[in-house]
Structure formats: structure tokens, C-alpha cells
Amino acid sequence: MTDPILSAEGVTKTYRVGKREIPVLRGVDFEMQPGEMVALLGASGAGKSTLLHVLGLLDPPTEGRVRFEDQSVSDLPGPKRAKLRHREIGFVFQFYHLIPELTALQNVKLGTMMDQGPLAWLGERKQHDQDARALLDRVGLTERLTHRPDELSGGERQRVAIARALVANPRVILADEPTGNLDSSTSESVLELLFEINRESNIAFLLVTHDEGLAARCDRIVRLRDGVIDA
């Protein structure tokens, strides 16, 4: 086995609502290998989204730590975490989360603007444009470049979101029920796309799902129950 690319060590997450403490994660140990396709299963409210946010450095763990490769990253200062999130991690959400004012192409291109100053970005804008177009091409949206999100179907929106997650060449993609809002045939084609990308690249996927059948097609299944992973 190679070294894990992303791992959680004794991660706990406790929310406080008023005086009440709600322990959601109670000590999660978890590793992902490069290029691996992992399914994360668990009942609704089990804490799957919470774990995904902690792993993606969007939310700090209450205790424990998150490692990226061999570096402890959950305790890095905000701007460093932002940079790592941009370079190494892509998110795909159930509700797409595209920016409504931007066209499909602009939504994807936005992913190339996180790290560069405006002038530097303009200097390379041809390259960025090509990359974004190529990715939209890859997800099958060559004809939809200038459509805004409200002019796209659910499946098309999710494809834009996938292209956006890929544009900065991340090594991990965290997908939170990416097909949870789609009908079964659209789901199937979106999933097929994800599996293809996984096969073609060395990107590791963590796929949150309720679908046992889908989970079975992944390299590995982890289950979250009572705030811990039970293998």
C-alpha cells in the first residue's frame, strides 16, 4: 500500500446548540489512497456531510486532525487552508451550488481565479479558457457553454459542477450525494462520468450516497454509524 493522500485521525465534531452539545463525529479514523473510489454510507443525520466538510478543510474538527499526504492540515491558518482546498480538493454538492449570474463556462473558469492576481490571470487567460472549454467538453456540455444555471437541467448543472471541481487539477474530489437530486437515468449518466474520470486520472473520490448498489461499484465502502466509521 502507498501512503494515504487524505486521512482523518481521531476526528470528533461536536455542535453546540444553546447549552446542549450534539456530538456528531466521535472519533473518526479514515484513510484514502490516491486514485481510490470510496463510498461513504450512513443513515440520514449520521454526519456524512459533516465529515466531508471536515476532510475538505471547510470546517475545523473539534478534536483530532486531518492530514493531507504527510502534513497535518486541519490546524493550518485560514489562508493556507484555502490555498490547499483550491489546489488539491474539489467539491461536488447535491444541489450543484453554481453561481447564478455566471454562464457554465464562467462558473468553471472561476475555479482558475482563486489563486492568481487579476493581471497574472489575464496574462494566462487563453490557457484558462482552453482548460475550461476542454473540461466542459469532457463532461459533454460543448453546446451549453454560455447557458446560465437556470437555463440548464439538473444533470447538466451537476456536470458543470463536476467540471468546476476538476479545473484546478485536484487530487481529491469530495462528492456529497452528487446524484441525490437527479432522476435515475440522469443519475446513472452522471455517475458513469465520475467513474470514467476516476479511471482516467489518479484522482481519489469520496462519494457520499444512500444507494447500496452504487456503493458496491466503488473500490471500497465505509459506513458511518454512531459517529464512528465501522469497517
Binding site: G56, L58, G78, P79, A82, K83, L84, R85, H86, R87, I89, F91, F93, H97, L98, I99, L110, G111, M114, D115, R164, A168
Partner: peptide, 16 residues
């Protein structure tokens, strides 16, 4: 507000 969350997920810092 939602865009702010999206931007964070995409790797925007608070300053950005």
C-alpha cells in the same frame, strides 16, 4: 450568502 459558501469551498480565503 450561498455564493460565499461556494467560494470558500472553491478555495477562496476570507479576504478574497
Amino acid at each position: 450568502v450561498k455564493d460565499i459558501g461556494i467560494l470558500s469551498a472553491m478555495g477562496a480565503s476570507r479576504d478574497g
